[in-house]
Structure formats: C-alpha cells, structure tokens
Simulated assay, not measured.
Amino acid sequence: MDLPVMPPVKPMLAKPVKKIPPDMQYEAKWDGFRAIVFRDGAETELGSRTGKPLTRYFPELVAALTACLPERCVLDGEIVIARDGHLDFDALTERIHPAESRVKLLAERTPASFVAFDLLALGDDAYVDRPLTERRSALVEALSGAVPPVHVAPATTDPELAADWFRTYEGAGLDGVIAKPLDLRYRQNERLMFKIKHERTADAVVAGYRFHKSGPIVGSLLLGLYDEAGALQHVGVCAAFSMRRREELVAELEPLRLGADEEHPWAAWAEESAHESARLPGAPSRWSGKKDLSWVPLRPERVVEVAYDHMENGARFRHTAQFRRWRPDRAPESCTYAQLEEPVRYDLAEVLGG
C-alpha cells in the first residue's frame, strides 16, 4: 500500500459545547466505531481511532468499500450497524471477536455500514491541508456512485436544519450534531471540531463503587434502576470526581457497606451465566481484558441525580453519567426506568437518504 496519507491515522476530534455554533458545516453525530479507510487498488484497510486495525472484523464492509470507492483514497467516517431502522451499538461491539468463524457468521447476520464524512487523500493527492469546503465537495463527487452499505454523511450549512436534525435524529439512535469550521484543515488527534450532544437527567440508586486506579479511593459509582418486576438492574457508572472528592466519598459511603451476612441484589455479578438474565456490573467483555472489575457493594439506599446523553437499547446509560447532586428526598424504590425520557422513533433510512 502506497498512499499520500498512510496508516496509522488518528482521526480529528471534537470538543463539547452547549449550543450549535453559527456559520459552520453541520453533520449528525454517529454512534459507532470511528474508522479511517485506506484503499489502494485491491488493498483495503480499516484503521480504528487508536490506530489498531479493524479490517478482519468487517469482511463484508471491506468488500463493499473495495467495490464502491475510488481506486486510491483515504476516508474518515463511522462504522455502524442498524437494526429495525435504529443504530445498534451492542451489535457493533459483538463484531470484535477473536474467532474467524464467529466474525463470518455475524457479518451475515448483522452486516455493517460505513458512513463517510471526510476525505484525507484521493489518487496521488493529500487533502489534509485543504479547507473543509473543498474536502467535502471532493468527497461527494468521489462517492457519487456509492451504494449501500457505503454512504456519504448528510451535511448542511443551515443551523436551523442542524437544530432539526438534533431533535429528530436521536430517534434513530444518533448522538447529536457535529459542527465544523468551513476553513478547517484536517489535523490528526486535535479537538478542532465541536459536538453538541443530548443531555438528560435521571435519579439512580448507588449500589456500589469501584476503586480508582491510583489507590483506595472511589473511581466510579455503580448505578441502578428498578425494572417493572422490582429487580435492581445495573445501568452504568458515574465518575469524573476530583481526587479530593474521591477520598471524601470513601468515608461518606462507609456506613452503606454491606456486612458479611447481608445480601446484595447483584451478588451473582462474578458468575457469567447470571448476566444472561440480569444487568449486573462486571459483565465479561472483550474490551475489558485483564482490567479489575471487582467492586465494593453498598446497601442500595442512596439516590443520586446524574446527567446522561442517551440510553443504549433502553437498558443502560450509553456513556459514563455525570454527577449532579444527591437526592435525599427520593426513595430508592422510586428510581425506575419509567422516569426516563424516550426520543420519538425515527427511521435511520431517512437520515442516510437526506
């Protein structure tokens, strides 16, 4: 492979802002695997955000990209999987599997798509030092003949349309809106774009905590919500405390630590089979590797208000939740899934056809 831009490439990033900024190019924020595609003739490679290859996990996508893309090019975009008109991140994570037979099976059952939103190289020319407007125009022209599962991300310079996308596209599983300065050059691993994400709040039960990697202080709080059957389900974690606050939380939560004779709703967390029927902390994962997933169980008596962007399959917080305040006025049993706001359903096909 011999291209003007060679792997590995660390993609350009975005920093969070509260409002959609004016006078920019706007795109939907996709919830998938960021990927850099390198094609040189018969060779097509997929690079991840960290630079590690993704090629072997998406053979059906490699074949589609080789068929659709220009002979020699480098693209930035997102690998996604859709089910019933909605992005499915769980199905995407299942694709990262060591067994070739499993990868082949999943490629048939849950085929992936690629949504291109930037052009880094075409033919013998690198485009990284050209402004976004020029890169976008070249991208649209280069992929004019592309067919599903290869797509060009919809883009607009109309902030009102971007605001409409922000409201409606969440119903298809998208994550918000990305804003890009029109004269922006492509700079690897730099936060030069802007992301506007959904934020909601929920009251959750604190049912345990994990220690911080630096020592015996709180790393993250384990959060739970009660389902319709009255079972406490693990829905994610709350983190991002200062080091001083992490130390204080150990003493603050000490009265809630379970005694040796007390039972915890998530007592079976270490048993792999238990995760099949309940959402528990510490589920086996190819992503966690040898990471210590043990935790300190607490009596589920304390309620915290957290901010979150959206739920994954309606079951858990997609990303780490942010602490807002303690809620001593709330009973733990009142912290149910019923409080969560569900976005109006929107068909992903309408997004990709926009």
Rank of each mutant, 00 (worst) to 15 (best):
G259F: 02
S288E: 06
V250N: 01
H151S: 03
V152Y: 03
V37P: 00
P154K: 08
Y57T: 08
E134K: 14
I217Y: 06
E341L: 14
K180V: 08
E341S: 15
R330D: 03
Y57G: 05
T50I: 04
P149F: 05
A270F: 04
H198G: 01
G208W: 04
E108V: 13
M1V: 13
A14K: 12
V140M: 10
F114N: 02
V205A: 00
V218P: 00
L258K: 10
L232K: 08
K29S: 12
R72W: 04
M193L: 15
R56G: 06
T157L: 10
V140L: 12
I81C: 11
L65P: 00
R185Q: 11
R327F: 05
R72T: 05
A91D: 05
S285A: 03
V150C: 04
V304C: 11
H234N: 14
L221R: 02
A28M: 13
P281S: 06
R191Q: 09
V306W: 10
I96G: 01
S277R: 14
A268K: 14
Y209L: 06
A202P: 02
V351R: 13
E160R: 14
V9F: 15
L174H: 08
P149G: 07
V303R: 15
L122I: 10
D292N: 15
T201Q: 13
W287F: 14
P8D: 06
Q322M: 11
E247L: 11
V206T: 05
G219E: 03
